Simulated scan of single mutants.
Amino acid sequence: MLVIDNLHAEVDGKPILKGLSLSVNAGEVHAIMGPNGAGKSTLGYVLGGRPGYEVTQGSVTFDGPENQKLDLLELEPHARAAAGLFLGFQYPVEIPGVSNVQFLRESLNSQRRARGEAPLSGGDFLKLARAQAGALEMDAEMLKRPVNVGFSGGEKKRNEMVQMGILDPKFAVLDETDSGLDIDALRIVGDGINRIMRAPGKAVLLITHYQRLLDYVKPDQVHVLADGRIVRSGGPELAHELEAQGYAQVAA
């Protein structure tokens, strides 16, 4: 579903990704772990198309609608989203003056229009939004509030999972979704990822520092990212090895 080949990227002229290659098949969850500054968030931003992250070499191929092979790097960010890519941010932004409901309905309907689908009516959208909020144990009243304004760290991450449930992407890149979550919220968010994304035609790239989220979202493969490259890959047991021994020992 996603094939990254020899990807190099830089920020402000500084090389961050230095030949990263990775393949994620449909139906799989892959976890990326690594020390601070290794390039984990840069990888997410490059896949999402964030400005300021310049790809200098390599390619990214994505299976879009009807499994059409797309050159992801040639698409604008909104086109990547319409093709089925979702990027969950390490630090979700606040958008004062824009309600969750307004933001989410416009996001969903813009993607539906891009795919040639009819937009959802207000009533149908509210049913969908309330169902997704309920599944993530988020008070439906929070849908009326400005996007992430006044939300705790855990509420922002839970709200982001509601967004993912509504948009229903094919491929999710989740950057430290476990950051700021307490024990209960970690379980709820983990269950949400499994409910929304554990399906034969979907896949997840889960970027995390810690093994704890992987207790809930079982990865098919775990990769260690260090100095802009994948330096080691393995099964779920690799995450436990990292937790016990640290990155320097395992990636050496």
Rank of each mutant, 00 (worst) to 15 (best):
residue 189 V to E: 02
residue 5 D to G: 07
residue 34 G to F: 08
residue 210 Y to E: 06
residue 214 L to V: 09
residue 109 N to A: 15
residue 181 L to T: 09
residue 220 D to E: 15
residue 79 A to K: 11
residue 6 N to D: 15
residue 193 I to P: 05
residue 5 D to I: 04
residue 15 P to A: 05
residue 14 K to G: 00
residue 152 S to D: 15
residue 33 M to G: 10
residue 209 H to W: 08
residue 216 Y to C: 08
residue 225 L to T: 08
residue 201 G to H: 14
residue 128 L to M: 08
residue 144 K to A: 15
residue 234 G to A: 02
residue 17 L to V: 14
residue 27 G to R: 04
residue 129 A to F: 10
residue 219 P to M: 06
residue 198 R to T: 13
residue 29 V to Q: 02
residue 245 Q to G: 13
residue 121 S to H: 13
residue 79 A to T: 10
residue 12 D to Y: 08
residue 84 G to L: 10
residue 181 L to G: 02
residue 190 G to F: 03
residue 127 K to N: 12
residue 110 S to C: 06
residue 171 F to E: 01
residue 33 M to N: 03
residue 127 K to A: 15
residue 152 S to G: 13
residue 159 N to W: 10
residue 104 L to D: 11
residue 96 P to R: 05
residue 248 A to R: 02
residue 212 R to N: 05
residue 105 R to E: 12
residue 122 G to Q: 14
residue 188 I to G: 00
residue 11 V to M: 04
residue 240 H to Y: 05
residue 219 P to I: 02
residue 244 A to F: 03
residue 87 L to R: 08
residue 58 G to P: 04
residue 123 G to P: 00
residue 168 D to E: 09
residue 168 D to K: 12
residue 68 Q to T: 13
residue 39 G to P: 11
residue 200 P to A: 11
residue 236 P to L: 02
residue 156 K to E: 12
residue 74 E to C: 00
residue 83 A to H: 08
residue 100 N to M: 14
residue 82 A to M: 14
residue 192 G to P: 07
residue 15 P to C: 05
residue 12 D to A: 14
residue 228 G to T: 11
residue 234 G to F: 08
residue 75 L to D: 02
residue 242 L to K: 04
residue 11 V to C: 01
residue 207 I to A: 07
residue 203 A to V: 15
residue 97 G to V: 04
residue 162 V to L: 07
residue 240 H to G: 13
residue 212 R to C: 05
residue 62 F to H: 09
residue 123 G to H: 11
residue 59 S to K: 10
residue 201 G to N: 15
residue 194 N to T: 13
residue 200 P to W: 13
residue 241 E to D: 10
residue 10 E to S: 11
residue 87 L to Y: 14
residue 132 Q to V: 14
residue 80 R to P: 01
residue 210 Y to C: 00
residue 201 G to I: 00
residue 187 R to V: 14
residue 180 G to F: 10
residue 131 A to M: 07
residue 101 V to S: 01
residue 62 F to L: 04
residue 135 A to T: 09
residue 161 M to F: 05
residue 5 D to F: 06
residue 32 I to W: 11
residue 60 V to K: 02
residue 179 S to N: 10
residue 66 E to S: 08
residue 54 E to T: 15
residue 73 L to N: 10
residue 2 L to N: 04
residue 143 L to Y: 10
residue 209 H to P: 05
residue 134 G to A: 12
residue 237 E to H: 11
residue 136 L to M: 14
residue 104 L to I: 12
residue 108 L to T: 00
residue 1 M to N: 00
residue 19 G to Q: 06
residue 31 A to D: 07
residue 84 G to V: 06
residue 204 V to Y: 01
residue 61 T to G: 01
residue 66 E to A: 11
residue 118 A to H: 07
residue 243 E to P: 07
residue 171 F to L: 09
residue 241 E to I: 02
residue 201 G to L: 08
residue 196 I to P: 07
residue 143 L to C: 01
residue 22 L to V: 05
residue 86 F to G: 00
residue 170 K to A: 09
residue 153 G to W: 13
residue 30 H to A: 04
residue 190 G to V: 14
residue 170 K to V: 12
residue 60 V to L: 08
residue 50 R to S: 12
residue 90 Q to H: 09
residue 212 R to D: 04
residue 177 T to I: 15
residue 164 M to L: 12
residue 24 V to E: 01
residue 87 L to K: 00
residue 179 S to Q: 06
